[in-house]
Write a protein that binds this DNA or RNA. Structure first.
Lengths: 197, 197, 197, 197
DNA sequence: AATGAATGAGGCTTCATTCAT
DNA sequence: TATGAATGAAGCCTCATTCAT
C-alpha cells in the first residue's frame, strides 16, 4: 500500500490526494456510511484505484481522521506559547472548529477506535490539549472544576450544534463556541453535578 | 396503513406498540442503521408485520421521533408555570436529556426532515421552548443575547458530547448540561461573535 | 437458517431442493469455484434466496457433500451383509462411483475440511468403509498390505481418471475401477514401497 | 509477444525464466487460481512484465505445462531402450509422478485444452507413451486388455489420490502407483467391463 | 391480519488486464 | 523494456421491501 508521498509516482500521488479530498468531503457531508463508489465518483477515479491506495474503507477514514487530528495538534502546539493562556485555549478551539465546517465531525473521535494509527495520533492530541488546559488553569482563566477531558469532549460541540441547520452561515459555530466557552470560564460558574469522566 | 389506534384490532394495536418500543430501543442503542430484521426480532413479530404498520423504516423512525418530541412538549408545558423561569428552563433541558441517554440523539432533529409528521410536532416543540425562553428572559435569568433557537440547538449537545465516551456513567451528560447552561446565564457573559441563525 | 424440511413452507422447501440440485450439478460440472450467481440462475431463484437457505457458498457445498456422503454410507451399510465380502466391497465402490458421474469429485474429501457437519459425516463413512475392508481381509479377498485408508483414497480415482476425457462414455470409470480393484486383489500383488499414511 | 529465447535481450530472457519458475511453483503449491500478483511477487518482477512475456495467465499455465510435458517426453525416450520393458514403463510412471509432488496436477491434462502449444506437446507425449506401452505388451508385461490411453489416464492418479491428504509424506504417491501398476500387470487380471475410450 | 420467503439493488473487495511513465 | 498505477468486471453477501401462504 503506497503511502509515502515522495516515493509515489506523480499520477498516483494525485489520485491519492483526490481520494483523500473526496473522502473528507463525502464523510463530512454524508457520514461514515457513504459508499466507496460515491467517494471514487467524487474523486473521479475507478473503484479499483481506491483499493490500491487504501486497504479498506476504514483505512481511508483513518487517514482522513489522522490528517485532521495532526493538523489540530500542530495548531495546539503553535498557540501553546501565547502569552494569554485563556485566549490561547480559545484560539485553539476556534481553529479546531474552523478546520471542520463539515458535517459529522463527531466521527473524529469515534471513527478509528480500533485503528492503531488513529489511536496514536488521538493520544498525542490529548496530550497537547492537556498542556493548554493546564496553562489556562494556572492563569486562573478556566473554571477550576473542569479538566482537559471536558474540553476534549466539548470541543466538537459547536460544530455539532450547527450541523443540522439548513442554510446556516458557515461560521455559525462561532456563536456556540462563544457560549460554551463562557460556560468554561471561572466567572459565574455554578457547581457541577457530576465528577469528571 | 393503519394508524389510528381506535380502528386497530387489539392484536394489531399491540404489535404496533411492540414495534414502536423495539424501534425506540434499537435506534437508541445501535443508531439509525439497525436493520429492520433486528427491530422485528426485538419486537417479536415477523418482518411482514413491520411493513403493515409502517410504510418504511424511516416511517418508524419518524414515529419514534414524534413520540419523543411529543413527550418533550409535555414536559415543557408542565414546567411553564414554575415560579422560577430559569430553573424551569434548566428543568426542561434536564428532562430532555434524560429522555435520551441513548446513542445517536442527533437524529432527533435530522431524522424526519422531510416527514410532515415530524416537522409538525417539531414546530410545536419550538413554540413551547420559545415560551420557556421568553419567560426566562423576562426574569433576567438568561443572557440577553441568546434566543430560543440557540437553546434549541444547544439542547442536544450534552448528550452528544458524551455519546462516544465508552463506559461513561449514564448521566454524565448532567456535567455538560451544567457547563453549557452556565454559558447561557447572564453573569459573566462575553459578547457573541455572530448573530443568531 | 431453515433446514428441517418438515418445518419448511412448501415454496421454501422447493427452492431449497432446487438450490441443492443446482449446487450439485454446478459444483460437479464447473468445480467449487462456480459463482453463486450461476447456481441461482440454474436453480431459477434470486440470489437473495440463496442466502436465506444457506449462510454461505461453503454452506451449500457442505450440504451437497453431506448428502453425497450420507448416501454413500447407506450404500456401504446395505452391502455389509453380502455373503461375498470381496464382491461387497467392489459393489460399494461401484455404487460410490456411480453416484457421481460428475466432475470434480475430489472436492468430496477436501470440501468442508473445516465444516463440522462434513467432518462428522465423513468420519462415519470411514467407519463404514473400515468395516467393509475388514470383512474383505478376513475373507482373504483383499491384499493384506492395504488398509481402509488406502481404499478411501483410491475410491475417487476411477472418476477422476476419466474426468477430463471429452465425450467419454458416461460409465467409462467402470474400466478404471476394475483395473484399480485388480490392483487391490491378493493375487499377483507386489510388495508396496511405502507404508500406509 | 517475445518467446524465442535467442531474440530476447539478456534481462528479458532472465525475467521470462523467473516467471516460468515462479509460475511452476505457485501453480503447484496453490493451484491454478493463484493470482498473477502472487506469481510476479515470487518472481520478483512487476506485474506489467508478466504481460509482456505472456499474453494471459493461461498462457503462462500453458508454458508451464508444456515444460512439464516436454520433460516427461524426454524421460520416456530415455527409458525406451531399457532391457525390461515392464520396468521401463514403471520407471517412466515413477518419474512422471516424481516431477510433480505438488498439488493440482490434474491441470496437466486439462490446462491448455484449447492451447495449440499444449495440444501439440501433449500429442507427442502420447506417442512416446504409446511406444512404451507397445514394448511392454510385446514383452507380455502388461495385461493385454489395456491400451496406451489407459496408461495415460491412470498416469496422474497416484498424485491425485494423495492430493488432499494433509501432512502426507511427500512420496506417498509411490504406494498408490504400486497398487495401480499391480492392476495393470497381466497376473491375476480380471476381465474389464468396458472397452477402451 | 400475520408470517416469513423471495427479490434484487447495492455494498465491499479482488484481480486479470491495460496503459502511462 | 520494466514498472506499477488504473481500470472495471465479477464475486460474495446484506437488507429494505414485496408477495404468496
Amino acid at each position: 500500500m503506497p503511502s509515502d508521498p515522495q516515493t509515489l509516482r506523480a499520477d498516483a500521488a494525485r489520485n491519492r490526494q483526490l481520494l483523500l479530498a473526496a473522502g473528507e468531503r463525502e464523510f463530512g457531508e454524508k457520514g461514515v456510511d457513504v459508499s466507496v463508489a460515491e467517494i471514487t465518483r467524487r474523486a473521479g477515479v475507478a473503484k479499483g484505484t481506491f483499493f490500491r491506495h487504501f486497504t479498506t474503507k476504514d483505512d481511508l477514514l483513518a487517514a482522513v481522521v489522522s490528517h485532521h487530528v495532526t493538523a489540530l495538534i500542530e495548531t495546539g502546539e503553535r498557540v501553546l506559547d501565547d502569552e494569554d493562556p485563556g485566549e490561547a485555549l480559545l484560539a485553539f478551539l476556534t481553529v479546531a472548529a474552523e478546520q471542520r465546517q463539515q458535517h459529522d465531525v463527531s466521527f473524529l473521535l469515534k471513527a478509528g477506535e480500533d485503528n492503531a494509527r488513529v489511536v496514536e495520533v488521538r493520544d498525542r492530541l490529548y496530550v497537547t490539549i492537556g498542556a493548554l488546559v493546564e496553562r489556562a488553569h494556572e492563569a486562573g482563566q478556566l473554571r477550576s472544576d473542569v479538566s482537559a477531558t471536558d474540553v476534549i469532549l466539548l470541543m466538537c460541540a459547536p460544530n455539532h450544534v450547527v450541523e443540522h441547520v439548513t442554510d446556516a452561515a458557515p461560521d455559525l459555530w462561532r456563536r456556540y463556541l462563544a457560549i460554551i466557552f463562557d460556560g468554561l470560564r471561572p466567572e459565574g460558574a455554578h457547581p457541577l453535578p457530576r465528577g469528571e469522566p
